[in-house]
Design a protein around this nucleic acid. Structure first.
Length: 509
RNA sequence: AGCGGGGUAGAGCAGCCUGGUAGCUCGUCUGGCUCAUAACCAGGAGGUCGUUAGUUCAAAUCUAACCCCCGCUACCA
């Protein structure tokens, strides 16, 4: 079994295209492992507590709950528009999440890792946010906030003793017990660990924040949003017994892959494992950290007006086209600039000209020269192509295990080009003029159809809609498409579907 | 400032560990083909591999210094 997760975005803003890329990457892995026949648990969700939401709700004259409910459609709509195949969506306002966060808190507290501590901190009364401790920052000027808005607060808060886990976390990361992709992100964390981890204030006074999960046994305090949010990974995978003890489910006691953005790596590589260690719960196996989509080399921001809306981007050429760009063109771990002309060029070149055109040209020849029904024993006639196919598939799988989705897909793309070259060499349209050679033409087209079947079995992880169209048009069951079948000695009858597969129209509006 | 990543044809990247005629995709130019979504195939043009110095018969590749871009140390997909 495999478990794939995404981070859960804060719902106060519209879904970010970067989050869309994150869910698409996660969805790729979910579909990839399903194609291997593995059972997959794939969860995503939304982070709905905190001061900003509370304040926005007030502005809109709504209760916080009604307000977050009204925001759900944005996120559900996004998942739909990029075709995400998750089987659990965790809202931090869900009752079972509420219970899980409290259960985890109790577990950490029982181990002596959450304690009350008197703290002195700087507080921004306008933004209603803690800026940092007085101890760490004796001069609040470093925060760049108007001094008139800064207040020094003195209060009792709950603190999670993250510092206790500094050494164990260093060991875990150094020994790859939590595998970090790419590696240099791990090094960044090790650097932080060198300085020693601080303890983390994990509660807020209810007077300052009421929209959150209450601290168990203390109605005057509410959990810090990160403590609350990270717990979602257990909510979706585990249960709580009669004693209030967390029972990790199969989905947690397996190979867990967290897909996140680089901005939240500290929380996932330090705080989260520390929380799990404290509660004596097993750790995730891998954390994949993607880069950011930039515009003109800078981050998107509302003030610059350069925000790309993922739902609109998906509507432009269809979800598969957007998914392809995000998976194949954007390097999995790196930042990448978003240029509309480039997006259009990649669509035309990779999808329209190569993948889409290959499907229609083969379909049309098979229809015209072989009457739409092709009964052939693949056998040794497919050996040459089959061996190349085996090599390329191995390269694909290896790259995907290294979490380099873009490089893996490029291996499959190489086979598409190979197919186009083969067709050029064989020139079936010439052979077909001679009725003596029609058998050879059919055998060749049969080979090209099976080849696409094998490729689309894996391309389906990136392009699920198109894969379904291809399967129908060629009348093949993708899950049976293996190199062994491709070169097998059994008769395979292919009956084409009635429609030519128009996967990627050239003209899109 | 410290640490990390990067600087290779117009754009995006690989090659660097394990030195030996500079490679891929897109774009561009020319030719071929006609099954196909004016798609496909072949070939050409285009680079003093950030700078300087060093090691070597030989350096994009190793060493040193320097310059530039980005990231992390504070929320962020």
């Amino acid at each position: 079994m495999k478990t794939i997760t995404t981070s859960i975005p804060y719902t106060n803003a519209k879904p970010h295209i970067g989050f869309a890329m994150e869910v698409v990457q996660a969805d790729f892995f979910a579909r990839y492992y399903r194609a291997h026949g593995e059972e997959v648990h794939f969860q995503t969700g939304t982070d709905e507590h905190g001061r900003k939401i509370e304040r926005s709700a007030q502005k809109n004259n709504m209760s916080a709950q009604d307000y977050v409910d009204s925001l759900q459609q944005n996120f559900q709509g996004l998942l739909k528009s990029v075709n995400i195949s998750h089987n659990r969506f965790v809202r931090t306002t869900d009752a079972d999440h509420h219970a899980m966060a409290q259960a985890l808190w109790r577990a950490c507290a029982a181990n002596g890792d959450i304690v009350q501590r008197h703290s002195q901190a700087w507080y921004d009364v306008v933004e209603e946010e803690y800026l940092g401790s007085v101890e760490e920052h004796p001069d609040p000027a470093v925060f760049g906030v108007d001094a008139a808005n800064i207040e020094r607060v003195d209060e009792i808060n709950y603190v999670f003793l993250q510092s206790k886990y500094t050494d164990r976390l260093r060991d875990l990361l150094e020994n790859d017990q939590i595998k970090v992709w790419p590696k240099h992100r791990r090094n960044e964390m090790l650097q932080l660990l060198e300085k020693g981890l601080p303890d983390v204030a994990v509660s807020r006074e209810r007077s300052k924040l009421s929209w959150g999960i209450p601290v168990p046994g203390d109605e005057n305090h509410v959990m810090y949003v990160w403590y609350d949010a990270l717990t979602n990974y257990l909510t979706g995978t585990s249960t709580i017994d009669d004693q209030g003890i967390i029972v990790p489910g199969n989905a947690w006691s397996t190979e867990v892959l967290h897909c996140i953005g680089k901005g939240v790596s500290r929380f996932h590589l330090l705080l989260w494992p520390a929380m799990l260690l404290s509660a004596d719960i097993s750790l995730p196996k891998e954390v994949l950290i993607h880069g950011y989509i930039t515009v003109g080399g800078t981050k998107m921001s509302k003030s610059l007006g350069n925000v790309i809306d993922p739902v609109e981007a998906a509507a432009e050429r269809g979800s598969d086209a957007l998914r392809w760009y995000m998976l194949k063109e954007i390097p999995t771990f790196d930042d990448c600039d978003w240029l509309p002309e480039h997006v259009a060029a990649v669509y035309a070149s990779d999808l329209v000209n190569e993948l889409g055109n290959l499907a229609t040209r083969v379909w049309s020849m098979a229809q015209r020269y072989s009457g739409g029904v092709l009964s052939v024993v693949p056998g040794s006639g497919h050996t040459m192509t089959g061996e190349i196919l085996i090599t390329e598939l191995a390269a694909f799988h290896e790259k995907i295990e290294q979490r380099k989705i873009h490089e893996g897909i490029q291996a499959l793309q190489g086979m598409v080009r190979y197919a186009n070259r083969r067709i050029e060499d064989m020139q079936p349209w010439k052979l077909a003029k001679d009725s003596e050679q029609l058998g050879e033409v059919t055998a060749f087209l049969h080979e090209m159809i099976l080849l696409q079947g094998v490729l689309w079995r894996w391309l389906a992880a990136a392009l699920p809609d198109s894969a379904a169209t291809v399967a129908t048009a060629f009348g093949v069951e993708l899950s049976t498409m293996t190199p062994e079948v491709f070169m097998g000695e059994e008769l395979i009858t292919i009956q084409l579907g009635t429609d030519s597969p128009m996967l990627f129209p050239r003209d899109v509006h």
